[in-house]
Design a protein around this nucleic acid. Sequence first.
RNA 1: GGACCGUUAGCUCAGACUGGUAGAGCGCUCGCUUCACACGCGAGAGGUCACUGGUUCAAGUCCAGUACGGUCCA
Length: 798
Amino acid sequence: MGWDDNGLPTERRVQNYFGVRCDPSVPHDDDFQPPADATGEPVPVGRRNFIDLCLQLTETDEQAFEDLYRRLGVSVDWSLTYTTIGQRCRRVSQRAFLRNLARGEAYQAEAPCLWDVTFRTAVAQAELEDRPRQGALHRLAFGRSDGGGDVLIETTRPELVAACVALVAHPDDERYRPLFGASVRTPLFGAEVPVLAHGLAEPDKGTGIAMVCTFGDTTDVTWWRELELPVRPIMGPDGRLRPELPDAAWGSGARAAYGEIAGLTANAARRRITELLGRSGELVGEPQRTEHAVKFFEKGDRPLEIITTRQWYLRNGGRDMPLRKELLDRGTELAWVPDFMRTRYSNWVEGLNGDWLVSRQRWFGVPIPVWYALDADGWPRYDRVLVPSEASLPIDPASDAPPGYEESQRGRPGGFVGDPDVMDTWATSSLSPQIACGWEEDPDLFARTFPMDVRPQAHEIIRTWLFSTVVRAHLEHDSLPWRRAAISGWVLDPDRKKMSKSKGNVVTPIGLLETYGADAVRYWAASGRPGTDTAFDESQIKVGRRLAIKLLNAARFVLGLAAAGDSAAADRAPDVGAPAAPSLRRRPEYTGAGDRAPDVGAVTEPIDEALIAGLGELIVSATEAFDEFDYARALERTERFFWDFTDNYVELVKNRAYRDGSDGTSARACLRIALSVLQRLFAPFLPYACEESWSWWQQGSIHRASWPQQDELPGAGDPAVLAAASEVLAQVRRAKSEARRKLRTPVESAHVTASQEFLEALSAASGDLCDAGNIAELTLDESTDGEAPTVEATLAAE
RNA sequence: GGACCGUUAGCUCAGACUGGUAGAGCGCUCGCUUCACACGCGAGAGGUCACUGGUUCAAGUCCAGUACGGUCCA
């Protein structure tokens, strides 16, 4: 079990929980205490103090999670727990990064990147989501430099007109073709920008010609790069327009206009610039309200900006087609459950528009393990990356010195400076197979466990966890990290909406565990098929609870019977001690020692053999379903058999099972065989009920017992015997029910008309049938027309 | 705009691969204190399988398309 504790969610929780915010300029305080009142203005704390608070809170949170998982009966070796902020993960994560760096797969670049202004960090493509936002289309007039009139564009972000570097239209657009190569002047700022052609311009969107700004969206970045445009940056990392002019050559009018918006947020600047444009006459008509998709950081709540910064990237096929092809091939090589999830992977890889940005301007994460040499003037030489030895990992460049340097040289000319950033949390999580398998640390374990068998995860993180793990294994080991991926769906709320904290429709499991027990919750969870979203349905949890209780009661019956039928144990008193559960007032007395394997040779009655035959088929089909990861099918089959077992078989043989003699022994042996198999088939779903009832008659944990095999059962029987008896019993019950009589009501005679095969099967179970139906006389009559069996029952008078 | 998944009883879902009389549970109605279980048991009612075509002796199932819902990617 690994806790993914580093990253932004933890930082945000710590900020809210303790009422602090991290400010690296604040010195470390050895005696720091968080504010008593966390609701006030956040207290700035130094980096080290902030990280300590993160460590403190994650430890508490992880203990709560561990308690929850233990209660759920999740099968985990808790001695092997790790955390992604822990020493071992930091070491693995940094080692993998350094290997990527040495092979040229990790590189740094000064480039436009998606930027969250709230958290002031770069974010990766995989962390984006589109959200619909209300906006307004502003129609702006750009005057042609040759005086030939205005060119009109539409934009939802008029404040970016200060950053405009070109206009683009589609190369085939006849309206603008004459303008290509000409220049226009931007409104308010009068900057001369070219009119250019590019295939990404959409002729039917707005006026068909768009302004290119550095940078308003990712299309701007493409245009800027492919048309080799200059940069005119105006957006600062804090989400406010930069104080300095974007273009030093601007004249006084442009300077004055920019002075109106410098330092404002994007929204405020938009309002101000709209006023200015209206006044200058360059805003044409009224802004038109519109809804459009805006890119957000998935954990953020302000739109992303695009700013130019120096960041670390990891090659992931976003730029080079050979690597992309190799990674697409890995997606084909991987076995997907369900198979269609492969398409999500392919879509994602094919849609990558850049390499993986792995550096984050945050604190609670694995540090990027490099330093930079400082030149004689004290400026970082980003082309002189200083790296630690693998043996020294993990390191923190903020407190450790690079090889060949002294700590005293930090920040000094000719000295060094540490990279201040941490890695994307997925840069560590993408190595979970390497972490768990002991990569470079336990060669024997690694050889035996890597690549792993299966990655279980949900579908929304195919683009992050799954894909990034494939990338790392491909680059480091030239292999898949696992052979299969089993993709689960989501739990939706009862209205089939995604659960989310902001909507307030989240159901947490703890209350359900308290009300219904872990077995019931697991039963419901297991009924959702792989890859399929499941609407939360409390009634299904109740069904699970009913099943678990039924299993306990059935076990109590079977094991109590065995004692009663064993004449040596017949006078043992039942245990009437403290109840284990409300429905378990008695626990079967069963004190013998040794292994309690059922007596296979004792099964002699045809109907008992019929039950065993069905049991064998069940084992085969449940095992096949598990082999295909279709746990829901395995559960459904087992459950169906079990209810049929209790409703029909048990009722049919109950009287015989109470009797001495070989026919009674056969029933008791069969019941015990069935119980043993059913307990083991149910064990993955109902671990508590199975473990408890298993302990009543077996040694050791059921969760270490062998999986049932068909060949451990007695030889072949004919399932038709049980089916025929069940069918007639059902019809006798119906007759009693329709007469509104008790089910114990004696039946003077029952006359069965059916095919010869049916009657032959039935007669092999007629004794049990008469016992169970309280039938005095059973007569059989062969039908000639092949119709369904019919039963005429004559009930005793009241 | 491209793709994927789904649409079966009031609700939640099986019915796949391999076409052959429409299934389960919950809920509802009725009955039953029955010696494992009233946290139980038995019985009953309830569906034009989203729609339109096609293939076939036969389609919930296979093929093509449409609509609606959800999701992923642009």
